[in-house]
Design a binder for these strands. Structure first.
Lengths: 84, 84
DNA sequence: CGAACACTTGGCTTATTTACCAAATGAAAC
DNA sequence: GTTTCATTTGGTAAATAAGCCAAGTGTTCG
């Protein structure tokens, strides 16, 4: 759960739900140093949420637990209907 | 999400899924100082995950977002079938 | 009213997380 | 083989979070 406790990591997960991405793409997305992003990805990997695969020069990350997305949808709906 | 990033808080949520509990019951459960538990509950409350209600001398907390439980079930099943 | 009880808040110390820079790795291109 | 490019790792400083004790708040009970 701790692995989900950072905005940048959530942003990355959201992005990865649309398909695999290399570190540089995610770095551009969150707008932090590439080393920072790499460490965030290491956290997610260690938690078993993503997997990585080296393809040529780049390393591509991919979601391993689709379940996470269900949770996001759930949260969204709670927030959405929270105003009633 | 940060609100879910602590073992004691997860334990409390799990417990609250079985019904409302007062602070003293939760304190006994997690085995920490009551002030610590109170602060954890404040975090959960601020995050909109629980609500509190004063009944006589005690304050009772209750789950506000059942959705959290779905997520836990999801995680459990992922862990369970993770060994294949 | 005053004491007792259940809880919250403030203050402070220690532990954990985060972020960046710089240096190391590892594959690919020349 | 060496340079280059993408990424990871080490190191360190700054920010956040966690824990406990002590003091404060609000209710109930005598």
């Amino acid at each position: 759960m701790k692995a989900l406790a950072h905005p940048s990591r959530l942003m990355m997960i959201e992005e990865l739900s649309h398909g695999e991405r290399c570190v540089c793409e995610l770095t551009e997305l969150v707008g932090a140093d590439i080393s920072t992003v790499s460490k965030h990805l290491a956290v997610l990997k260690k938690a078993g949420i993503v997997t990585d695969e080296k393809k040529g020069k780049q390393v591509y990350y991919r979601l391993k637990v689709p379940c996470v997305l269900n949770f996001f949808h759930c949260i969204e709906s709670v927030i959405t209907e929270g105003s009633r």
